[in-house]
Design a protein around this nucleic acid. Structure first.
Lengths: 208, 208
DNA sequence: GTTTAAGTTAAACGTTTGTTTAGTTTTGGT
DNA sequence: ACCAAAACTAAACAAACGTTTAACTTAAAC
């Protein structure tokens, strides 16, 4: 895949939404064609097959997914401030790309489907390296504790967020969040601060 | 659905594994019939349809999923000990039932599929009530801090665990976990202790 | 031993699936 | 204006899908 033209992007956008809503196997090429107002044959014409379209979709999205951590690193701020900004960056990226995240999580674990995700993993490794730098800064200044498994920090931030979304119906019932707006408001004003609180508590050096 | 006979259980067990591996839409009735060594028609004969079989599967599994929290509550132990036991109960249940959890998370969020999960939510609410009791115990003895959003504690425990599993390939690469055994060992000796550490840090009353 | 119901089967049902074909329209360079 | 390449379409393709049918076997009851 060299370059994507306008029509291809239009198809991928529709496909992304439908795959996230109904799953890859639950979405037919005809569904995509109908909603994208194109002919069924265009999928094969542009991407070769439905499977290759999924690969193109993942490739397209992941290439755009690197965190803007460089600027964060260079920022002359308190490690605690950097940590907050870091969490916000992560959550915002996930919120913007929640469709493709759903797809990747779902189809990746799918045994029979073999998607190329080396690039996806590379992005995650890069981001992990930057997190490690921020954590080490905090450790050197004595503000963060020493025994931190940095690798598990992304899983903590994203895990809490995804679990909240995946059990959405339960939380809407328990927390009395009637509308989608209520739900997003809770994420903004309660969930994200909670995630920050969790990481702060975890990283705080008690011996200081 | 009144009672499940041996054959029905055999079918559901195979279906559970395949749905978890390949998704509901990615698994055909013929796949299930082949692996369960039964005739294709038996699915419709016993359950009515493929969809109703999924409902029966979820109903069967969730009825068996209540945490044994009652004994934990009555235990005359330190709140910190109870917290540890609580986390172990949660994780162990998820590890035992990880297939049905995968299915529920992914098929539930599926827009077009309308599965009855009131019972599933009821179980979760019951469990949440018990967690609240344990937390309140710790708060009354002054060991836990007061401003805890109890509702988000299950999402924290399960979220970290699921995220670790969902991005398995990434973590196998980053943490150099070559075999399945290595992976499970890491969960046992690193991930679960980490989750305990997270919750302890979060709940600990600093003003004590 | 006969009867009745439940269990089980292979085959066929009508749809829907992803993909291809063969033909038409549009586009852009000369 | 012409032509070749690209874009696009309706129709058809075989394969796979979930489900139903009708016939057959087994099991239990009387």
């Amino acid at each position: 895949m060299t370059e994507l033209n306008e029509k291809q992007l239009q198809i991928l956008q529709v496909a992304e939404r439908l795959f996230a809503e109904k799953g890859f196997d639950g979405t037919s090429v005809r569904d995509i064609a109908r909603e994208a107002s194109i002919n069924i044959a265009m999928v094969s014409y542009y991407f070769g097959s439905k499977d290759k379209m999924l690969e193109a979709l993942i490739l397209w999205r992941t290439s755009d997914m690197r965190l803007q951590l460089e600027t964060l690193l260079k920022l002359d701020a308190d490690p605690w401030e950097k940590l907050e900004k870091l969490i916000e960056l992560y959550i915002n990226r996930v919120r913007r790309n929640h469709c493709i995240y759903r797809i990747i999580h779902f189809e990746l674990a799918n045994t029979q489907r073999s998607i190329k995700i080396e690039e996806f993993n590379e992005v995650k490794k890069r981001n992990l390296g930057m997190i490690r730098q921020i954590v080490e800064e905090g450790q050197q200044s004595g503000q963060f504790r020493k025994d931190i498994i940095v690798e598990l920090l992304p899983a903590t931030v994203l895990g809490i967020y995804f679990q909240f979304h995946n059990t959405r119906l339960f939380y809407q019932s328990v927390l009395d969040l009637k509308t989608d707006e209520d739900f997003e408001q809770y994420v903004e004003h309660n969930l994200i601060p909670y995630i920050k609180q969790v990481l702060k508590a975890l990283l705080k050096n008690e011996n200081q």
